[in-house]
């Protein structure tokens, strides 16, 4: 049970302010989710480079000399920018798979939050205000981003249990609601070879979408089929390299508000999250329909 915010910029001049706008929206949703907070931000992609966001509870120890060790292991140039418990690792070339493998051996305690050309995911336990401050999210730039505040229902309050969940390269998902068939689905997906790290219902939703897309579905198709295969209450917001999408279950109890102007498309669990966006008073504000997939891309 949670608060969700999302901001997709159409106007490039707002890109330096993405982190600032999104952080403020996230903090407004503290009441809906005081346990943990997270954000997926899509920054500038550099041609030929891949980004890995990683997290460690022992960052100082795990990140020390990591770029050198990793570079030797995968035979490519690596640079690392640490940010509190997280670090963004820049790889030359499409080396995400090799880097994940090498990381598992070199630093088994490290968790990979995301990989892709543009995506970075930051999430930790704590109040949204504290989480945004520790990573200086307000200072980040990007083209779009998704944030989440969590009130844990049935799974533990941990970093792994925080949202967003990465669903594949440059893809992520956040969720408000409660899935009621996630245990059966988790077992099915694990039999299919999909890796699921937590007992969180949302991660199963994310893994489901990944699995669908690995089997040839587009994101839109995967979301469509989620309406059939997922049981329970959900509002999902998903991010991709160049866009973001929204879908609500057919009962659509969990709240969702959207706003669109010439400059952006914004999502909030409540209108409160949107009130400080520029030009909100003249925005088109509406609620996404139940069982309907919405998608915006650059």
């Amino acid at each position: 049970m949670c608060g969700i915010v999302g901001l997709f910029l159409k106007d490039k001049s707002l890109e330096p302010k993405l982190g600032e706008l999104l952080s403020a929206m996230l903090i407004t949703m503290t009441d809906r989710g005081p346990d943990s907070a997270g954000i997926a931000i899509y920054g500038d992609a550099v041609d030929g480079q891949t980004k890995l966001t990683v997290q460690s509870d022992n960052a100082a120890k795990d990140f020390a000399s990591l770029s050198k060790d990793l570079s030797e292991a995968i035979g490519a140039s690596v640079s690392l920018q640490a940010n509190d418990t997280h670090a963004v690792i820049l790889l030359d070339g499409p080396k995400a798979g090799a880097a994940r493998q090498a990381l598992a051996e070199l630093r088994p305690e490290i968790r990979v939050m995301s990989d892709g050309d543009a995506i970075e995911i930051y999430k930790e336990v704590g109040l949204p205000k504290d989480v945004t401050e520790r990573f200086n999210l307000a200072g980040m730039r990007g083209s779009h981003g998704i944030g989440h505040t969590r009130m844990a229902t049935e799974s533990a309050v941990t970093t792994e249990g925080a949202h967003p969940f990465s669903t594949g390269a440059d893809q992520c998902l956040v969720h408000n609601g409660s899935l009621s068939n996630h245990n059966v689905l988790r077992r099915k997906l694990m039999r299919e070879g999909v890796q699921i790290g937590s007992m969180n219902d949302t991660e199963v939703g994310a893994a489901y979408l990944t699995w669908k897309m690995q089997n040839g579905a587009s994101l839109g198709e995967a979301l469509e089929s989620s309406l059939e295969d997922l049981d329970g209450f959900f509002t999902f917001v998903v991010g991709t390299k160049d866009g973001f999408g929204v879908v609500r279950d057919p009962i659509a109890c969990k709240p969702a508000v959207m706003a669109e102007t010439e400059q952006y498309v914004a999502f909030g669990s409540e209108y409160r999250a949107l009130v400080d966006l520029p030009g909100i008073d003249n925005a088109r504000v509406w609620e996404p329909e139940p069982a309907t997939v919405y998608f915006w891309s650059h």
């Binding site: 608060g3 809906r32 989710g33 009130m151 209450f233 109890c253 969990k254 669990s269």
Partner: peptide
């Protein structure tokens, strides 16, 4: 079986 104007703990708080 559910309340008519709220669902879940985040709404219950309100």
């Amino acid at each position: 079986c559910r309340h008519p104007d709220w669902t879940g703990p985040d709404d219950l708080e309100i």
